[in-house]
Design a protein around this nucleic acid. Structure first.
Lengths: 118, 118
DNA sequence: TTGAGGCATTGATGTTTGTCGATATGTTGC
DNA sequence: GCAACATATCGACAAACATCAATGCCTCAA
């Protein structure tokens, strides 16, 4: 399987100079915005934070469901959004599904906003 | 004028440990998400970046309008969103309105995501 | 005072998004 | 195989959003 020519948002965010250093071209903005959109929801912010600070850096969906006053499909939907954008890794073990954050993607995004060089 | 008891999103983002360090409580998530939502649009990302990298760190609306293939009200709307959330400062001089980024807010947000201590 | 230009506001419209209930899929133990 | 459980998908709906054309509000110059 060869490398895709179109970057995923998670890849795109690692390839730009900081937001405040140089004007972002339209194509880069279109690739980065979905990543921020995935983060721009209180439930998904908490999900990400919960997964990250869980034992071993990963959390089972069953744990996450209990932390919210939301239906199971809703949590599943939010996890899917975070997974598809590349912020959460997903691994199934038996009946349970575990999610794990990708701190590199989050670090790249933080650097893009905060203006740090990598 | 006394300090407000309810934090604006721009203030709230400076008050949390990094996303990956400890679970974000619901209230903090509700305050931070709007800031990310304001950023989660390709046009607003480019606007912010354009303003920041303009001469003197500020840009006139007239310059910004020309950089996009969008109507003037649409640009005005996006600038309003960025201003009201606290990411852009606004100052009117004569007929022209100038916007300026608040790099501290962006740095705090970057630190929140990237996991840096301040 | 009147007109022109820069920017904001309003109202309308099509699209996206968050949420739920119902249902499907997949796994384990009996 | 079947029942129980964990998770995902589907379909529907209301709320939020991006966009535009029309219009309003300022400010400056003539």
């Amino acid at each position: 399987m060869s490398k895709s020519l179109t970057l995923t948002p998670a890849q795109a965010v690692a390839c730009c100079s900081p937001l405040l250093a140089a004007p972002l071209d339209a194509a880069a903005a279109e690739r980065i915005a979905p990543l921020l959109k995935a983060l721009a929801d209180p439930v998904r912010l908490r999900l990400l934070s919960l997964v990250a600070s869980h034992d071993g850096g990963e959390a089972c969906v069953c744990d996450l469901n209990d932390a919210f006053d939301l239906s199971q499909p809703t949590i599943s939907h939010h996890l899917k959004v975070l997974h598809e954008i590349g912020l959460l890794d997903r691994s199934k073990r038996g009946v349970w599904v575990y999610y794990r954050v990708r701190p590199d993607v989050l670090a790249d995004l933080g650097a893009l906003l905060g203006g740090l060089s990598r």
